[in-house]
Simulated assay, not measured.
Amino acid sequence: MRHGSVTYFDEQGKPFLPEQVPLNELGREQAAAAGRVFAQEKLHFDRVIVSGLPRTVETATRVLAETGQQIELERWPELVELRGGKLSAIPDESLKEAFVGAFDGVVPEDRKFLEGESIGQLMDRVHPCIDRLREDKSWDTVLLVLHGGVNRAILSYALTNQRIFLGNLAQTAGCINAIDVGAVHADWVVRVMNYSPISTLQGESRHTTMEVLLDQYLKSRNRQS
C-alpha cells in the first residue's frame, strides 16, 4: 500500500516537516477503507512492514484495526520515501523539473527528487530490502505500507525484473497493490496495482500528486517573490 493522504503544505504554501506529517481526514478514511477490503477478502497477514514515518505507521494501524488482526509493526527505515533537498534553494526555472521529473517515464538513475536523493540511490536501498524479504520463507502474506516513490521502485522491479524505475506508475494515496512472488528471483507477478477502494477510477483530478504539490508550494514562492 501507499500510506493515506497527508497535508504537506499549509494554506499559504509553507511546507510541514515531511518526517512528521500525520494522515489528514481523507487519509484516515482511505486507510480504513483499505482495511475493510482486506477484511472482506479474509486476508491474514503474517507480517506488516512500514517505513517508520508516522503516515505509514498510522495507515497500517488503521488497516489492522479494520481486519481485527494484532500484529507488531516492523519498521524498515531503508524504505522511507525519496528524500528531497531544500525547497527554497531550488531556482524558479528548475521547480517543475524538481517536483515532477522523478516521476516521468523511464527515469534516469541520476535524476534527483527535489534536488535531493537520486533515483539510483533510492533503488540502492529499496531493491536489497525486497530481495531480503523474498529470501525469507517464513511468511506467506506480508503487508507493506510505504510511499509513492518507494512503491514505484518495487513495482518497477517486479514488472521488469531489472534495475529500472518507471516513474509514471500512479500511486494514489491509500492505494493497494498485490504482487505474487515465487521461489526464484524472476518469479513474481503484479496482480493488482493502484487500486483505491474509495475512488475506483480516480476521476477527481487529472493531475499527479507532485503536480498538485507543486501548485500548493507555488503559493508560498509567489508570495516571497
Rank of each mutant, 00 (worst) to 15 (best):
M1I: 10
R2Y: 08
S5P: 09
S5M: 10
D10W: 04
E11V: 09
G13F: 04
G13H: 08
P15Q: 12
P18H: 12
E19D: 11
P22K: 05
L23T: 03
L23Y: 01
E25N: 08
G27I: 07
G27H: 01
R28G: 00
Q30C: 02
Q30P: 04
A33E: 00
A33L: 00
G35I: 04
R36P: 07
Q40T: 06
E41M: 10
K42C: 06
K42W: 00
K42G: 06
K42D: 01
D46L: 08
I49A: 00
V50A: 00
S51M: 06
G52M: 01
G52V: 03
P54G: 06
V57H: 05
E58F: 03
A60C: 06
A60W: 00
R62D: 02
V63I: 12
L64Q: 04
E66I: 07
E66W: 10
Q70Y: 00
Q70P: 00
Q70E: 02
Q70F: 00
I71Q: 01
E72R: 01
L73Y: 01
L73M: 04
E78P: 04
E81K: 08
L82G: 03
R83S: 11
G84A: 08
G85F: 04
L87C: 08
S88V: 13
I90S: 09
L95A: 13
L95M: 09
A98N: 02
F99I: 12
G101V: 11
G101Y: 05
G101I: 02
A102C: 07
A102G: 13
A102K: 05
D104Y: 06
V106D: 05
V106G: 02
V107E: 02
D110L: 13
R111Q: 15
K112Q: 10
K112S: 10
F113Y: 15
L114H: 07
E115N: 15
G116K: 09
G116M: 02
E117M: 10
G120D: 01
Q121V: 11
M123L: 12
R125P: 01
V126E: 02
P128M: 05
P128N: 03
D131M: 00
R132F: 15
E135N: 05
K137L: 13
D140T: 14
L144S: 04
L144P: 09
L146F: 06
H147G: 07
G148A: 06
R152C: 04
Y157W: 15
Y157S: 15
A158M: 07
T160D: 05
L166G: 06
G167C: 04
Q171K: 10
A173T: 13
G174I: 08
I176G: 09
V181P: 00
A183G: 09
H185K: 10
A186F: 09
A186R: 13
D187E: 13
W188M: 15
W188N: 15
W188A: 11
V189E: 03
V189N: 14
V189I: 10
R191M: 08
P197W: 10
I198V: 11
I198M: 07
S199F: 05
T200S: 13
G203D: 06
H207W: 09
T208C: 07
T209C: 12
M210L: 15
V212E: 02
L213M: 12
L214P: 02
L214Q: 04
Y217K: 08
L218N: 13
S220H: 14
Q224D: 14
